[in-house]
Amino acid sequence: MWHRIHALVIKELLALMRDPRERILIIVPPLIQLLIFSYAATFDLNHVRLAVYDQDGGSAARQLISDFTGSPNFELVRRLHSQHDITGLINNRNALMVLVVPQDFSRRLRNGLPTQVQVLLDGRNSNTAMIALNYARNIVNNFNDSWQRDHHLAKPPAALVTHAWFNANLESRLFIVPGVIGVLLLVVVIMSTALSVAREREQGTFDQLLVTPLRPLEILIGKSMPGLIIGLFEATIVIGTAVWWFDVPLRGHLATLYFGILLFLLSAIGVGLMISSLAATLQQALLGGFMFLVPAVILSGFATPIGNMPQAVQYITLFNPLRYIMVVLRGVFLEGTPFSLLLNQFWPMALIGVCTLAFAGWLFRHRMY
């Protein structure tokens, strides 16, 4: 028995390693993914975009602000002069945190009275907001310890008051569930389209298409439509589940949401058909699909913020359609982002879809003629 098993193992290894493309798929992608993921998949925040609204201007306020700006975790992007500037700054994602120092901050501290300092957070990414809030708490606690020690106080002089926009309680469910919708749609569409041509080629039925009157464009459309239909059906189910089962608020318009999903599905179908056209066997199509899916999820901002990744990795994420649908899903669900403000997310997905579908069509013609 063991002799037969040994012979079977040797045969499978030889069959696997005989194809140069499969040898490359086994060795090269894991090494590349290890290098990329080691830099990209991190929950540490090094450059939290911070804005400061100093209503006090006293020495104590300047000391507290210098503690924030001197920390390696924060990057001062703007000093505000009006309460009205805060809304646009957070809505446009120009700052993740706004530190608000009240007018009588320094005076109350000098008189030995307790006071408050306010932190406003962008709660759309609850994980990032929680990490940034912990950094802010540590800085305020260190400021309290220093002030108590220097002025011989018995109680902490400053209390931190926080308020998160779009996700008041920083519930991770409201951040995770919309992201899961994008991941599920990508997995379903990529795997269903990536296997289509490779399966027919392996079964020999793809050759029968060559003798039919169908043109390459018609074959491309025929291969794309099932993935699009399945994706839209899947999207409807998961959106309904998110709203009625998980109580995720849907503050935007369904038309805006479905338009973004449609563009995302077209780009995912293009990637899947490219993989399917390049793969000679079903096994290669499966490996190619997973080789795309894992980096796409890691580099999408699903769990770790893209802004915290190295600059070179951030450029790579520009070719990832999942990156853009994450912004669309979370924007429409959590903040009710209108169509006009999502145009900068729509056109990259449309461009990726056009390029990938065009390349898949070229591969069809190349294989047919």
Rank of each mutant, 00 (worst) to 15 (best):
residue 1 M to C: 12
residue 5 I to C: 13
residue 5 I to R: 15
residue 7 A to T: 11
residue 7 A to G: 12
residue 9 V to N: 12
residue 10 I to L: 15
residue 10 I to E: 14
residue 18 R to F: 11
residue 19 D to C: 09
residue 23 R to Q: 09
residue 37 F to H: 04
residue 41 A to Q: 04
residue 41 A to V: 06
residue 43 F to I: 12
residue 45 L to R: 02
residue 49 R to K: 13
residue 52 V to H: 02
residue 56 D to C: 00
residue 60 A to Q: 13
residue 61 A to G: 04
residue 61 A to Q: 00
residue 62 R to T: 09
residue 63 Q to M: 12
residue 64 L to E: 03
residue 69 T to S: 03
residue 70 G to S: 00
residue 70 G to Q: 07
residue 71 S to W: 01
residue 73 N to Y: 09
residue 74 F to R: 00
residue 75 E to N: 15
residue 78 R to V: 10
residue 80 L to T: 04
residue 80 L to R: 05
residue 81 H to D: 13
residue 88 G to A: 05
residue 102 P to R: 01
residue 103 Q to H: 10
residue 103 Q to P: 09
residue 109 L to Y: 09
residue 112 G to E: 00
residue 113 L to T: 11
residue 114 P to N: 10
residue 115 T to N: 06
residue 116 Q to Y: 08
residue 120 L to F: 10
residue 122 D to E: 07
residue 126 S to Q: 06
residue 126 S to E: 06
residue 127 N to A: 15
residue 128 T to M: 13
residue 129 A to R: 02
residue 130 M to E: 11
residue 135 Y to F: 06
residue 139 I to V: 01
residue 146 S to N: 15
residue 147 W to R: 10
residue 151 H to F: 06
residue 151 H to V: 01
residue 153 L to K: 06
residue 154 A to L: 10
residue 157 P to D: 00
residue 160 L to M: 01
residue 162 T to F: 03
residue 164 A to Y: 08
residue 166 F to N: 11
residue 168 A to N: 14
residue 171 E to N: 14
residue 171 E to Q: 15
residue 172 S to R: 14
residue 173 R to K: 11
residue 179 G to T: 06
residue 180 V to T: 10
residue 182 G to E: 02
residue 186 L to D: 09
residue 186 L to A: 13
residue 188 V to C: 08
residue 192 S to Q: 10
residue 194 A to L: 03
residue 201 R to G: 08
residue 203 Q to L: 14
residue 207 D to S: 15
residue 209 L to E: 09
residue 212 T to M: 03
residue 216 P to A: 04
residue 218 E to I: 05
residue 219 I to T: 07
residue 222 G to F: 00
residue 225 M to Y: 08
residue 225 M to W: 09
residue 227 G to D: 02
residue 227 G to R: 05
residue 229 I to V: 10
residue 236 T to A: 14
residue 236 T to D: 14
residue 240 G to K: 06
residue 242 A to V: 03
residue 242 A to N: 00
residue 242 A to I: 02
residue 242 A to W: 05
residue 245 W to E: 11
residue 247 D to C: 03
residue 249 P to C: 04
residue 250 L to N: 05
residue 250 L to M: 04
residue 254 L to N: 12
residue 254 L to Q: 09
residue 257 L to F: 05
residue 258 Y to Q: 04
residue 261 I to A: 00
residue 268 A to F: 08
residue 268 A to L: 07
residue 268 A to I: 07
residue 273 L to R: 01
residue 283 Q to W: 14
residue 283 Q to K: 15
residue 285 A to G: 07
residue 285 A to Y: 07
residue 285 A to V: 01
residue 295 P to T: 04
residue 297 V to M: 03
residue 298 I to F: 08
residue 301 G to K: 08
residue 304 T to E: 12
residue 305 P to A: 04
residue 312 A to F: 14
residue 312 A to G: 13
residue 320 N to P: 05
residue 321 P to N: 05
residue 322 L to T: 00
residue 326 M to N: 12
residue 331 G to I: 02
residue 335 E to Q: 15
residue 336 G to N: 08
residue 336 G to W: 07
residue 344 N to H: 15
residue 349 M to Q: 07
residue 351 L to Q: 08
residue 357 L to V: 09
residue 360 A to V: 05
residue 361 G to L: 10
residue 365 R to N: 11
residue 365 R to C: 11
